[in-house]
C-alpha cells in the first residue's frame, strides 16, 4: 500500500479547543478514503489541514506531521501555493466564482502561468469532460457559472479543481447540498476519478461511504477511533464506538 498522504501524530488546537488528537492516518494512492463521524468531531478540520486551509484561522496551532509524498507540508520551505496546486479541495457548498464557466475552469491554470488560448481551451474541455458536465455546458461556456443548478455548480467546482491537475482531491461533504440525481452523478464521478487521483471525502451518509470508498476512517471527539478497509469497518468494526455509530445508535 502506497500512502501518498500520511499524518503522523497530528494535533490541532483552535485556541484552547483540542480539535484533533494525535491522528495517524494513511491515505493510499488511487483510493477513496472516507472520513465519517458525528458533527463536530473534526472531519472538516482534518481535511483542511491536509491542504493547509487552516492557515486562514488566526487562533490555530498545529503539531505533528502531514507527509505528502515524503514532504512534511509544514516545513518552512514548503510553499502553500505549491501544496494546494497538488492537493485540491472541493467545498461543501458549491462555490463557483461569479465569472463565466470558462473563466472558472481556467482560473487555476491561469494562476499557474498558462496563458495560451489554445492550451486553456483544451484544459477547459478536458476538465469539464472529466467532471461529466461537458455536454451540459459546452454551448454556454461564456455564461455565468452562477446560472447553473447546484449540482452543476458542484461539478463545475470539481472540474475547476481538476484543471490544475492535482494529485489529491479533498471533498468536504461535496454532495450534501445536492439532490439524489446530482449526488449519484458525483458518486459515479468519484469512482471514475480515483483512477487518476487519490481522493479523500467527508460524508455524513453511511451508504455513500460504503458505495464510494475503499478505506474508511471513523472520527469521534477529535480522535481517530478506527481506520480500515471500508468493507471490514462496516462488517466487523473493531471498536465498540464504531459499531454504535455505524448502526445508528448515536451521532
Amino acid at each position: 500500500m502506497n500512502a501518498i498522504l500520511k499524518t503522523e501524530h497530528l494535533n490541532l488546537w483552535y485556541g484552547q479547543n483540542h480539535a484533533l488528537k494525535d491522528i495517524n492516518l494513511e491515505m493510499p494512492q488511487n483510493q477513496v478514503t472516507a472520513l465519517i463521524g458525528p458533527s463536530g468531531c473534526g472531519k472538516s478540520t482534518f481535511l483542511k489541514t491536509l491542504d493547509r486551509m487552516n492557515d486562514l484561522v488566526p487562533s490555530v496551532r498545529i503539531e505533528g506531521k502531514v507527509m505528502y509524498r515524503d514532504q512534511n507540508i509544514f516545513d518552512p520551505q514548503v510553499d502553500v501555493t505549491w501544496l494546494r496546486r497538488h492537493v485540491g479541495m472541493v467545498f461543501q457548498k458549491p462555490n463557483p466564482f461569479p465569472m463565466s464557466i470558462y473563466d472558472n475552469i481556467a482560473y487555476g491554470p491561469r494562476t499557474h502561468g498558462i496563458r495560451g488560448k489554445k492550451q486553456l481551451d483544451e484544459i477547459v474541455e478536458k476538465s469539464l469532460q472529466g467532471a461529466a458536465i461537458w455536454d451540459e455546458v459546452k454551448d454556454r461556456l461564456k455564461k455565468s457559472a452562477l446560472s447553473l443548478s447546484g449540482g452543476q455548480q458542484q461539478r463545475i467546482c470539481i472540474a475547476r479543481a481538476m484543471a490544475v491537475e492535482p494529485d489529491v482531491l479533498l471533498m468536504d461533504e461535496a454532495t450534501s447540498a445536492l439532490d439524489p440525481i446530482s449526488t449519484s452523478k458525483i458518486e459515479d464521478l468519484i469512482a471514475e476519478l480515483k483512477k487518476t487521483y487519490t481522493i479523500v471525502i467527508v460524508t455524513h451518509n453511511m451508504q455513500q461511504a460504503t458505495r464510494v470508498s475503499d478505506r474508511c476512517a471513523f472520527f469521534l471527539h477529535g480522535e481517530l477511533v478506527e481506520a480500515d478497509d471500508t468493507e471490514k469497518l462496516f462488517s466487523v468494526p473493531k471498536d465498540k464506538r464504531t459499531e454504535d455509530y455505524i448502526t445508528g445508535r448515536f451521532g
Binding site: L56, T81, G88, M89, F91, N95, F97, Y107, T111, R160
Partner: peptide, 8 residues
C-alpha cells in the same frame, strides 16, 4: 477559499 484552494 476557492481561489486559495486552487493555489492562488
Amino acid at each position: 477559499e476557492g481561489a486559495l484552494g486552487l493555489g492562488a
